[in-house]
C-alpha cells in the first residue's frame, strides 16, 4: 500500500516534469501522453486523488496520508484514516480561514514566552503545518534516509513518539511540541467533526464510540436508556438539511 502511494506520487511528479518540458519545447503539449497516463493516477481508489487537495503539495499529501493511516489504522474498530477522510479534513481546514489565521492575534513583537502564555509563533496554522511537515521529513531523512511516508511502520511509530514527547528538536527551530499539538488536534477533528467538513466519512468516527451525532431530542431517552446502550445510527448535519 505504501508502495502504491509512492508510485502515485512518483507518477504525478514526473508527469509535471514532462508537462513542463513539453510546454517549453513545443507550442502544443501532447494530449496523447496525458490521456495515456491518466488512468494510472485514478487507479488508487482509497482516499482522494492528490489533485483534490486544496492546500497540500505532493510531499505534504504523502506525509499526511501516511500519518493518518498510521495513527488510525484499519482494524476491527474502524476503516483507516484516509478512508475516514481525515487527510481531506485537514487539507480543507488548512486551506480555509482557520488555516489562514482567522481569529488569531498576529501582531508582534514576537517572543517565545513561557508555556503558560500559550501559542506565540508568528505563523498561521497553515504555515506552522507546512514548516512542521518539512522539519519532520528532514528529521526522517537524517535518521532513516527516507521521508516519513517511505519509512517502515515501526519507524513511523518511533517518529510519532519523538514528536509527542518532544524528544527530538527540529533543525529549522520550530518547537516540536507546538507542531505536534496542532497535528494531533487536527487528526482528532478530522475523525470526530461533522462530515460536512470532509472528515468522519460516513460518520464512521462517531460510530466507533456510539455517538449519535446531531440527534437532538433525548428528553424521553434519559429515563428510557438510563444505564442501557442507546441504539444509534449517527446523523450528521447534511442528513437533516
Amino acid at each position: 500500500m505504501t508502495g502504491q502511494e509512492f508510485d502515485r506520487r512518483g507518477f504525478l511528479k514526473s508527469a509535471v516534469v514532462v508537462g513542463a518540458a513539453a510546454a517549453s519545447a513545443a507550442t502544443i503539449a501532447s494530449p496523447e501522453v496525458a490521456q495515456a497516463e491518466a488512468p494510472a493516477a485514478a487507479t488508487p481508489s482509497a482516499g482522494p486523488d492528490a489533485a483534490d487537495y486544496a492546500f497540500f503539495n505532493l510531499d505534504e499529501a504523502a506525509f499526511i496520508e501516511a500519518l493518518v493511516d498510521h495513527m488510525i489504522p484499519a482494524d476491527e474498530v474502524s476503516p483507516k484514516g484516509t478512508d475516514l477522510g481525515v487527510n481531506v479534513y485537514i487539507d480543507r481546514a488548512l486551506a480555509g480561514s482557520w488555516g489562514k489565521g482567522d481569529r488569531l492575534y498576529m501582531q508582534g513583537p514576537w517572543k517565545q514566552g513561557a508555556p503558560s502564555q500559550g501559542y506565540q509563533l508568528p505563523l498561521t496554522p497553515a504555515q506552522l503545518y507546512r514548516a512542521g511537515i518539512a522539519a519532520t521529513n528532514a528529521h526522517c531523512l537524517k535518521a532513516y534516509g527516507k521521508t516519513f511516508d517511505r519509512i517502515e511502520g515501526a519507524q513511523r511509530e518511533e517518529v510519532l513518539i519523538s514528536l509527542s514527547t518532544g524528544k527530538i528538536s527540529f533543525d529549522n527551530g520550530l518547537p516540536v511540541r507546538v507542531f505536534w499539538t496542532t497535528l494531533y488536534q487536527t487528526v482528532i477533528e478530522g475523525m470526530f467533526s461533522d462530515p460536512i467538513y470532509g472528515g468522519n466519512r460516513n460518520k464512521a468516527g462517531w460510530a466507533i464510540i456510539g455517538f449519535p451525532g446531531i440527534i437532538a431530542v433525548h428528553r424521553d431517552h434519559v429515563e428510557q436508556y438510563r444505564g442501557k446502550p442507546f441504539p444509534t445510527k449517527p446523523l450528521g448535519i447534511s442528513d437533516m438539511s
Binding site: H70, I72, P73, D75, V77, S164, Y184, I208, I209
Partner: peptide, 11 residues
C-alpha cells in the same frame, strides 16, 4: 494516544 489500542480504548 493513537493506533488500534487507542481506538479500542476510545470505543
Amino acid at each position: 494516544q493513537w493506533g488500534s489500542d487507542w481506538k479500542r480504548a476510545t470505543a
